[in-house]
């Protein structure tokens, strides 16, 4: 007797939970002519909830030690490795060849490893001690920008998304990934991986939906600190930039192809703020100067 296969429900990932969209809307995802899944079409209220979760998770995420963040990112890679076959299958469903799917999954796993390593190092690279001309110790460090909304290029199924999430959370931000409906499957599976990797709920939130519907709400949300946009739609980018002025949001435009092909820590820097601290240095004792 043929066994009936269990089909997967592709849900959203908000605050460490997997809810369906509050709107009850779905998108029938087709692989070729085959119906594969009913993917959630997230609403602006889902976004609002995701943002709230991201905000409350961010402080604790940043307050973990860098070593701990590093281990969690490494753990994500471990978990992905264990579900490698599933990622490959899903990429094939989303139009990849087997060889390409394998390459993309392996590269994605390695990308986690790469940024796992940066967690406790980028600060040393980008910080500075500033030799001010007064009796003060002065140093600049990077701090997370806060809640960052990631908009991968539509059609990017996995590597293009991992390449945005990994540096964002390595930098101590919490994120909301807004994934277009063109290839929404892997990112949901990825969120299941994140969920089982000791990553605190809310640090990464994943919404699948229509960008054109969601972005106008995202860009004027007063509690979103930055949007990283990897798309090619100039009009869409322009309207994000226009709306960003509402709360002086940072709009960071990245090139998806470049992001996929290169590994460096500069996106971590872009998604951080520089904080400079001053403190007096007492001048007693040296060279018998007294006081």
């Amino acid at each position: 007797m043929k066994r009936l296969e269990i089909l997967k429900t592709y849900k959203l990932y908000i605050g460490g939970k997997f809810p369906r969209t509050e709107s009850g809307r779905f998108h029938a995802y087709m692989s070729g002519k085959k119906h594969v899944a009913n993917v959630c079409r997230a609403s602006r209220k889902d976004f609002r909830d995701a943002e709230g979760s991201a905000r409350s998770a961010q402080v604790d995420w940043w307050r973990k030690t860098a070593y701990n963040r590093s281990q969690i990112l490494y753990r994500i890679a471990e978990m992905m490795e264990g579900r490698k076959e599933q990622f490959i299958e899903e990429l094939i469903l989303q139009g990849h060849t087997k060889a390409k799917a394998l390459a993309e999954v392996e590269k994605s796993i390695d990308r986690w490893i790469y940024h796992a390593g940066w967690c406790d190092k980028y600060q040393q690279l980008f910080s500075s001690v500033n030799p001010v001309a007064s009796a003060h110790f002065n140093f600049s460090v990077l701090e997370p920008t806060g809640v960052v909304c990631l908009v991968p290029k539509p059609g990017e199924a996995l590597l293009g998304i991992v390449s945005m999430i990994a540096p964002a959370i390595a930098a101590g931000n919490s994120v909301i990934v807004l994934c277009d409906l063109k290839s929404p499957l892997s990112v949901i599976t990825l969120s299941e991986v994140l969920h089982t990797s000791d990553l605190p709920g809310g640090v990464v939130n994943v919404l699948t939906g229509e960008l054109s519907e969601l972005l106008p709400h995202v860009s004027v949300h007063m509690d979103v600190n930055a949007i990283v946009y990897a798309g090619d739609d100039k009009e869409q980018l322009k309207s994000l930039q226009l709306d960003a002025a509402t709360n002086v949001k940072r709009i960071i435009k990245v090139d998806s192809a470049e992001l996929n092909s290169t590994e460096d820590p500069y996106l971590i820097r872009e998604m951080s703020e520089v904080k400079t601290t001053w403190h007096p240095i007492e001048q007693i004792g040296a060279s018998g100067s007294g006081y």
Partner: peptide, 24 residues
Amino acid sequence: AGVIWANTFNKFDPTSPFGGFKES
């Protein structure tokens, strides 16, 4: 905040980065 003065205030220096978070 982008600049924090601890036990001092309103100090500036060319070597010291200056600028804000959020709407600053």
